[in-house]
Design a protein around this nucleic acid. Structure first.
Lengths: 201, 201
DNA sequence: TGTGACTAATCAAATTCTTGAGTAGTGGAG
DNA sequence: CTCCACTACTCAAGAATTTGATTAGTCACA
């Protein structure tokens, strides 16, 4: 039941249409809750039906019309309740880790490639998040901002996203290099074996 | 489609029953793929039907009978294919981050409590993972083990789990202290205001 | 002599998430 | 002038995940 609350949380920062929300999700909220546009539209419809958000039509000339949504009082109350309720534990869910788990039993080459790809994707996200953080805090330094800024929620979650991506990148690079070294060692020992086999004949 | 591969990966380390698998999942595989027992039983049934694992009945005297499963050749091949295929990006999915996102707009007290609970849960997991890592590597040091150990897959994924939990703990504590300081500041300014209001009368 | 915890599973239902396609107009690049 | 990308949204099918019970014997503890 957290998608609805993630949507409410995102709408707290301003009016959005489904389409805009999908974009905003990708950079901000996706740090802790990923969702496809279809889900967002569906959730917005449900939330409106339940009176937790209110939508208004905006007629546009050169673009299709859109509906902007904002959180109602009931929506705010719902968020309050949610914040007070117990949360379930967080966890990683990652294909690539499954592959690493079996990396010493199956072909390694492809996994190494994927680790490096992942590392560079993480790098990209790190830069993005860094820029977002600078933008959110303005000219003041972090300590100051965290003490006195008015809207620190998104900043705090971005910090978590950033550290996650950094750890992820570092781990990917470390593991890639470990697997590479091991396959190089194996290669060498295979060559040696061939050589000695030849010598025996 | 990664649960099936996570199960195959886990079974690579030995024969397990559904029940044992559920336990093993909790400490090892759950680091990158969490699943409930019901899911595991269902998946084992499917995998057996498809010939990717083979089960054998073990009759027990004092305990209910159980079925132990091991990966077949076809299962190994399936894992190979999986390891070679592209993976989808990883991400955090966490209730608590949704709450932090709105922490400056709703009641903070409960969120602070939850952050501290989470931190101590993470602490517990850190110790568990540390012990697991020591056990996996035996007496040799990490560098040595990663270079020459035969089964490093689980070690590598535990390393990821460990760094995730450490970051998670640190972040929770940091955020909790930020939110506490802010609410203390607010408290003080409210008191001051009351005082000056009283003085005015 | 109950009480609760552990082993070993299975069933059903509801909910959530993913995959994939489709509509329809605008505006820019080559 | 065609093709592609962008805005804005919808529909449906399916797979995956969660929630919540239920069965049934064993064992330790008080």
């Amino acid at each position: 039941m957290a998608l609805r609350h993630a949507v409410l949380a995102a709408l707290l920062d301003g009016e959005y249409s489904g389409y805009q929300l999908a974009k905003a999700f990708d950079i901000g909220v996706a740090n802790f809750w990923h969702a496809l546009p279809q889900q967002l539209y569906a959730e917005l419809t449900k939330l409106e039906k339940e009176g937790l958000i209110a939508g208004r039509q905006v007629v546009q000339e050169t673009r299709p019309n859109k509906r902007l949504f904002q959180v109602t009082k009931a929506g705010r109350a719902e968020l309050e309740d949610f914040a007070a309720a117990v949360s379930k534990p967080s966890s990683i869910r990652d294909d690539l880790l499954v592959k690493v788990q079996v990396a010493d039993r199956v072909g390694t080459a492809s996994v190494i490639g994927q680790l490096e790809e992942r590392a560079s994707a993480a790098e990209g996200k790190i830069e993005l998040l860094g820029a977002l953080l600078r933008q959110l805090r303005g000219d003041v330094d972090e300590e100051e901002f965290l003490r006195h800024g008015e809207r620190i929620g998104p900043y705090l979650t971005c910090l978590r996203g950033l550290s996650f991506e950094q750890e992820h990148r570092d781990w990917c690079l470390r593991i890639a290099s470990v697997l590479k070294e091991r396959s190089a060692l194996k290669e060498r020992s295979v060559l040696k074996e061939r050589k000695s086999t030849r010598a025996e004949r």
